[in-house]
């Protein structure tokens, strides 16, 4: 579904991504993990078009999107939720979702957009908060809104950037259930995560990054046992 080949990006002297190869299969939940500074967020920004790669290519559903602007990727079905939640604060929850529903697919009629918003409100449990201004939400609600807004663009593949960060364990559990519901509704998911219990609970497959490179991939158990991964997380002396 998504194919990444040799994707590279440097910021001045820092190599943030170096020859990344990646494959996302339809219907799966893929986790990208790695120590701080491994280049995970850079990868996500490259995939959603917020930064342009120096080399490599990104193919999505058979189309080359390497240099496509962010909105075009969204139109093709590549959705994105941010780590630092950035709701439109002067809009209600419903209006926030409506932006995604109206513009996520060009030419969506207003009626259809409202229907999509209803469905997403239902799926994400935000229906009771629909008329609340986004500036007044709690952190958990903010995170849900971030997810919901990306869903409102009707993505085929959803990119999630540490959406669990800052949540209490019980809240993270709720969020895990939500991501599972999203997958069940037919959306493929690629997510970045620090919390290993969340990765274990959600991921069908795990990709490990370090120093801008993919150093291992496979099931959670395979990756956890991989010597390079232990080295990356525990240090060389281990």
């Amino acid at each position: 579904m998504l194919r990444v080949r040799g994707l590279s990006k440097r910021f001045g002297g820092v190599v943030a991504a170096s020859g990344i190869d990646l494959e996302v299969e339809p219907g799966e939940i893929l986790a990208v993990i790695g120590p701080n500074g491994a280049g995970k967020s850079t990868l996500l920004n490259l995939l959603s078009g917020l930064i342009r790669p120096d080399a490599g290519e990104i193919t999505f559903l058979g189309q080359d999107l390497t240099y496509a602007p962010p909105e075009v990727r969204t139109w093709k079905g590549l959705g994105r939720a941010f780590q630092i939640v950035q709701p439109f604060p002067e809009m209600t929850v419903r209006e926030n979702l409506l932006v995604g529903a109206l513009y996520g697919k060009p030419g969506t009629p207003v009626q259809t957009a409202h229907r999509v918003v209803e469905q997403v409100l239902e799926l994400t449990g935000l229906a009771p908060k629909a008329e609340t201004e986004a500036g007044e939400l709690t952190l958990l609600e903010d995170k849900r809104l971030e997810l919901a807004r990306a869903l409102a663009t009707q993505p085929k593949l959803l990119l999630l950037d540490e959406v669990m960060a800052g949540l209490r364990p019980a809240e993270a559990l709720e969020a895990v259930a939500l991501v599972q519901r999203i997958r069940t509704s037919g959306v493929t998911v690629l997510f970045i995560e620090h919390l290993m219990p969340v990765v274990r609970a959600l991921a069908d497959r795990v990709v490990v990054m370090d120093y801008g490179q993919v150093i291992a991939q496979g099931s959670y158990a395979e990756v956890a046992a991989h010597p390079k991964v232990r080295q990356a997380y525990l240090g060389r002396s281990a």
Binding site: S48, G49, L50, P69, P70, E71, T74, W75, G79, R80, F82, Q86, F88, P89, E90, M91, E95, L98, V99, G100, L102, Y103, G104, K105, P106, V110, R149, A150, A152, T153
Partner: peptide
Amino acid sequence: SRLHYAMAATRQGEAVARVLGVSV
């Protein structure tokens, strides 16, 4: 109009608006 939402989204968060499909 529907443009109202695109304009308000552009004002309140340009990068997010683009990722949501708005041609900022």
